[in-house]
Write a protein that binds this DNA or RNA. Structure first.
Lengths: 321, 321
DNA sequence: AAGCACTATGCACAAACGTGCAGAGGGGAA
DNA sequence: TTCCCCTCTGCACGTTTGTGCATAGTGCTT
């Protein structure tokens, strides 16, 4: 029966993690086999019963973190990853550590805004469970494009967040970009859309990656059929370096006068800056330009990124300061 | 060099606990041997870099905890221990789990009152490190007796707490009991004593065991040469069931008119009840009478005890309710 | 009641891990 | 410099842990 299984998992976790018994000893006490105990412990970790966190001593922390932290005044977590790994492996490891790092930040009654993209998709696959009450996951920007509704891709991400935290999920069923700004204006007056916008306005946490225009291997947005040639040309002519939740900005963090933003469904940068906790996850040095812009725009309060990118970030800063 | 060793420990901990890499893989990235990684991880756990906690889901928790929690209105942690283990083994396991349970409760700027006794001694041996700033450990009651100053025994406990949390330690260099109440009055006016008393008055956390008069194997206080025959007779004639920090109480939690308390150096029960967080650690069913008295006196806000004792606690309650 | 579908269990093997020991390295002190 | 002392390292071995697979159990349907 599943009742005693949960209870056993709790007992096993206590004995293993708090009393340093071996699984063998625990198995004898629970009158079961050692392999069952091994599985009970996996389940306990998986279900969020066991919480493992690493406090990195701010003072003695690696110099890299300290430099970024001080310069941009944000909480930074550098993920140790060998520079020799390929993009996919790096992303996977950054995503796993990001997922476990944000776990402790999620609380009951939170309204959590989540963007979509390859980074968030990877993060969503590694979330550890944590039971919360009355939390809501709200989608930050639409995901439809010219060819597909984008529903499944973005909604898979949302669903994973929702089930990890036991939260309600609010999708945002609009395209990423409207063809005409006027349509956006019209839709923004629809009550179904307004419900989502109101939730976004009350977000306590926002989680997003960054897109970078000049990435070697371009972000979803720039390659996924969301923008036509004309749009891409317009971007190139307006000094845009990247985007967060399909809202574009320049290297200095400004976004005024970028016409594409008027058709984008993501939250205006000024609105995003209102959110108390804004967690930015970045993997891969090719995102460096987008990342610099996002930091210049003060879009993040927490930054999780791989070591190589972190190093690039401070190297550059070293040259200009 | 010790600098890069700490940094390596942090990296290793992140890779092991947050990215699920094997020690072998970590060793390759850090260009060292697997066994070194194993040791780095031990060090990381040991030094409090890695924090493992078990959240027990209040709702779905074992019935035993729920019953105690509701009846006494306190946070309870039942330590799973087979009833067949002997007292020493049980104490060791309760102490280890207690030490790891109180870790997360300790914060910077805390003033932590600590009693002494076999239970606290065991707990102090299992504390996990956690860096805090400006915390103070203050001794709750004197430890001297007729034969020795009791200094080393109690001060070892205090010292272990102090070094685990990086806190200043304030000893209380007085006997456990004065021979004459007048001496206590006199001493309580000494400035050296008053400094300690003032700290005690500002405690945010108190940690203590309980003594039980009728324990099969009597507490330190009743056997350690602290009390003479006359005292023990007086106790027997006043319905005392136990003590906390050498302050005695009856089964109903009352302590008025117990003359020995006038010569005791522990905090009055009323004063102890002022402390926001009062953590009581109990191991062994023979302490049941003392424990019941302490709970009746509402001395604890948090209770950590072994399973067998917990069961006895609710069984008895089942009979009287 | 029988059948079915699904999950939990124990076994056995392979992988991962902890630790005693011997040797290497790295400061002081003479 | 040379010696000594102490700490750190890697090896090798035994222990502990994870997991594929066959089986036993459990609950639901017909």
């Amino acid at each position: 029966m599943t009742l005693s299984r949960d209870a056993d998992a709790l007992r096993a976790a206590q004995m293993y993690y708090l009393q340093d018994l071996t699984m063998d000893a625990i198995a004898r006490e629970l009158r079961t086999s050692r392999s069952t105990v091994s599985r009970l412990l996996s389940a306990a970790r998986e279900s969020g019963l066991v919480q493992i966190q690493i406090r990195n001593p701010l003072d003695t922390g690696p110099e890299l973190e300290g430099m970024i932290r001080r310069r941009y005044n944000l909480d930074v977590h550098v993920v140790p990853v060998l520079g020799t790994l390929n993009e996919a492996e790096t992303l996977d490891r950054v995503a796993m550590q990001a997922a476990r790092t944000i776990g402790p930040l999620v609380d009951s009654n939170a309204i959590i805004g989540v963007a979509w993209g390859s980074t968030l998709s990877a993060v969503s696959r590694h979330l550890t469970r944590k039971i919360t009450h009355d939390s809501v996951i709200v989608q930050l920007n639409g995901a439809g494009n010219m060819h597909t509704t984008g529903i499944t891709y973005a909604s898979d991400i949302m669903r994973r967040f929702g089930s990890a935290y036991g939260a309600r999920v609010e999708q945002f069923p609009v395209p990423a970009f409207f063809d005409h700004a006027a349509t956006k204006t019209a839709m923004w007056n629809e009550r179904s859309v307004q419900r989502v916008l109101e939730l976004q306005a009350k977000m306590s946490i926002a989680i997003f990656g960054v897109g970078s225009v000049h990435a070697d291997y371009p972000s979803h947005v720039y390659a996924g059929g969301y923008l036509d040639e004309e749009d891409l040309n317009a971007l190139a002519n307006s000094d845009v370096v990247g985007d967060v939740a399909t809202v574009f900005f320049r290297a200095d963090g400004s976004s005024d006068g970028i016409v594409l933003n008027e058709r984008s469904t993501g939250p205006a940068l000024a609105q995003l800056r209102q959110v108390r906790r804004r967690i930015c996850v970045v993997s891969g040095v090719s995102k460096i330009n987008g990342l610099r812009g996002a930091l210049a725009a003060r879009l993040a309060t927490d930054l999780i990124l791989d070591e190589a990118t972190a190093r690039r970030l401070v190297d550059y800063e070293g040259l200009t300061s």
